Computed example of a mutant assay.
Amino acid sequence: MPVTTELILARHGEAHCNVAGIVGGEATCTGLTDQGHAQVRRLAVRLDQEHTTAPMSALYTSPRRRTVDTAAHLADQLNLETRVEPALRGLDHGEADGRPWTAIKRRFGGRPQQYPHRPIAAGAETWNAFISRCRAVLRRILDKHEGERVLIAAHGETIEASFALFLPLPLDDTELAGQITGHSCLTRWQRHRNTFGHDVWMLAGHNDTNHLRSPMEVIT
């Protein structure tokens, strides 16, 4: 079946907030670690090698520092202009921003997905509101790039939102299932057209970090 449109979501590399175990929101995200930069450089080289004959047509990123850092490596390697899309930002954490995740989760009773109709802290966005926001912006981007290959420097939560968009999953009152997303991993969604002329979105890959294990030349 021919692929008519493709959405590739690349999670950011390891960030300082990940290593410190703190909530890295709009106010406190300080970008990638040295390890995170190395991870994304390997990812960028891989994507460049895989898409020489069918390159990406657009690169989008969340406005947070760790995804902007990620997008910068991708843009340089793939010769793309970075488009910052505010609605792709991660969960708005409110007063949890910059605080230890263990303390926030202990007070809340789990991660944000556990009680998706409740904010994890004062001024925070609920998980269901976040999913609704991300589904809408992903759909808007896909409508704008019909028939193209689009790359997004994303948060792990954005990848979860893509499952809610394409499967689709309901906005429930409690956590049902999640997805593992490693640093700099790839998730690929492809829209295939079958012999009956029907367009169907299909998951072609998820949590793919083969570029971190396979030897390759890394451009520094």
Rank of each mutant, 00 (worst) to 15 (best):
P100N: 09
G98T: 12
A129T: 04
I219P: 15
A204E: 14
G94C: 07
T187I: 04
L203F: 11
I131W: 10
I152Q: 00
R213V: 10
S214M: 12
E148H: 12
R107V: 07
Q179W: 08
T126R: 15
A124R: 05
Q190I: 05
I141D: 00
I219N: 14
D143P: 01
P168I: 09
G110K: 04
R140Q: 12
R140W: 09
Q114W: 08
G147M: 02
A103T: 13
K105Y: 14
T209N: 07
G110R: 06
D199Y: 14
L167Q: 06
D92P: 01
R106T: 15
L167D: 10
R213W: 07
L169K: 06
V200D: 15
G123N: 04
S184I: 00
E125K: 05
M216S: 15
Q179L: 03
F196P: 01
L171R: 09
H198T: 09
D97Q: 05
F130S: 03
G94D: 11
R213H: 15
H145Y: 11
L176Q: 05
L142A: 05
F108S: 05
L176D: 03
E157N: 08
R99D: 05
E95N: 08
G94Y: 12
S162V: 01
F196Q: 13
A121Y: 13
L167R: 10
P170V: 04
Q114L: 03
H206D: 04
R106I: 01
S214A: 15
R133D: 01
A121I: 07
G178C: 03
G205I: 06
H145T: 01
T126F: 08
R135D: 02
R191L: 04
R193P: 06
C185G: 03
I159Y: 12
F130K: 08
A164E: 03
N207A: 09
G110T: 05
E146I: 03
I152G: 00
R193T: 15
P168G: 11
E148N: 07
P116D: 02
E217T: 14
E95D: 13
E160S: 06
G197I: 08
L203A: 11
G205Q: 15
A136P: 08
T209K: 07
L151M: 06
I120C: 02
G94K: 05
R118V: 13
R149H: 10
M202V: 15
